[in-house]
Design a protein around this nucleic acid. Structure first.
Lengths: 249, 249
DNA sequence: GGCGAAATTGCCGTTTTCTGCACTTAAATT
DNA sequence: AATTTAAGTGCAGAAAACGGCAATTTCGCC
């Protein structure tokens, strides 16, 4: 088994079960515990999981440990959220994914906005639920523990019956050549469906994720209608995307 | 169980119940009280909780903004939740509704319980989501703002495709003659479907709702297998239900 | 194809961490 | 004041982490 392959398997296991034990992995993959330890160390440094004594835990599991680290990107996400919120008009049908950026957007929605939000992201649903005039449609299916979003055939089938005006996606990697990429297989399937179903696709991301690549491709750049980052649209890093015909905000 | 995982669980419990007892934790997680004490000590140093004699308190508890309104029925619901949680065994498929009593039950689920929970109640889903070993299936549809549960044809159709082992319902009115009644039309439809789909129906309610009636009928008493209140099963008010063949806990 | 550098992996001895047990000390309750 | 209950301490066995080393593979380069 290849190193990369093995590490992907470990990440997958962590996402599935929220925790892995070094010795379990060692016997499952049939490599020494030293190798597992080194893998976990690397994956920890890359932020894919949290290494602990005896194994590793997913970020989702210990969300209580890490609010301290990304206070700075929090502000950026608020800026993104505010820009994104201006796109939504009364009466619209809006499909959204999950992730912290989407949550920030939800918090930026004006009180008097009257629209319909469709999502499978539990944290996002909770936000929408608190808005007085917003109708919420929940996409049901199996809940993925680490992404806190419903994934599976049911969710995909349901989304395919919809034709929302806008689709908001928080994305993890964007690149001129490779388009939108991600690391979680199930989430990729879902996002592809969301993109195809929607009339307009809006991608939200902090600038540090621009020009980065993840293992699994979601779609090419041509599917993206609007790109929102915390930077002003004149920023040089964004120019290639403007040139590619994307509306940058 | 990993150390970090255990500590996360403790923090979770503290945030949920505002207090934890060392010996309770010790038996729940099945480690010695020494280990618990050391955990509490570390978590105290990290500021996650406040260690006191015999256990720990949450920080929120010190700000005496405590929900003083119905602390009494809160405790009763906790008793009900604990009774209810004992019914759930590893590997079960459990369908649940919403409501504060169900939430309390969710909070009483033992850490090492491995089961599948199916629900359309957003607050309940959020609780289940935090449990490490519980799989969550979300029932999707339009979200009802006041009950915070998904209602509609989609939800009903989906529930009809399931055959869960247990169905937990928090009910608002129960009467010997009129059975279970409620006031919200959509919720009634949904509860009827849930009852029909499940192999066993467990009703949770505080005693004050016993022998009361609401406008819309959900089902007769015969559909109820188990009734759980905060009272001991010998209490006279419960006798008619025992006589009616219901298992009272 | 061949060579050398770098990467990968397993092994091993040492160090650290974790945990339960026994025992003492401190605190709370009656 | 006596008794029960929890907290603190030291210790020891087990498990895991660490760091160095060597064998093997991979890869770039000629």
């Amino acid at each position: 088994m290849l190193k990369r392959e093995r590490q992907a398997y470990i990440v997958h296991q962590v996402n599935l079960h929220n925790k892995v034990l070094s010795n379990t992995l060692s016997s499952q993959i049939d490599v020494s515990e030293d190798t597992i330890r080194r893998d976990l160390q690397e994956l920890d440094e890359k932020g894919k999981l949290i290494k602990v004594h005896g194994g590793a835990l997913s970020h989702a599991f210990n969300d209580f440990t890490y609010p301290s680290k990304n206070i700075y990107s929090q502000d950026n996400k608020k800026i993104i959220g505010q820009k994104a919120a201006t796109l939504i008009k009364d009466g619209m049908f809006v499909l959204t994914g999950g992730g912290t950026t989407i949550i920030e957007m939800a918090r930026c929605l004006p009180v008097n906005l009257s629209a319909t939000f469709i999502s499978g992201s539990v944290p996002a649903i909770v936000e929408y639920m608190h808005h007085p005039l917003i109708d919420v449609i929940v996409i049901g299916d199996k809940l993925s523990k680490n992404s806190k979003i419903t994934v599976g055939a049911d969710a995909i089938a349901r989304i395919n019956t919809l034709k929302p005006d806008l689709c908001f996606l928080g994305i993890n990697a964007l690149d001129i050549q490779h388009g939108i990429t991600d690391s979680d297989w199930d989430v990729v399937q879902l996002k592809q469906t969301m993109i195809e179903a929607s009339q307009k696709v809006v991608c939200l991301t902090i600038a540090e994720k621009i020009n980065t690549i993840q293992p699994v491709k979601i779609c090419g750049l041509s599917k993206v209608d609007i790109l929102i980052t915390e930077l002003p649209k004149e920023h040089p890093i964004l120019q290639p995307y403007v040139d590619a015909g994307i509306t940058v905000m």
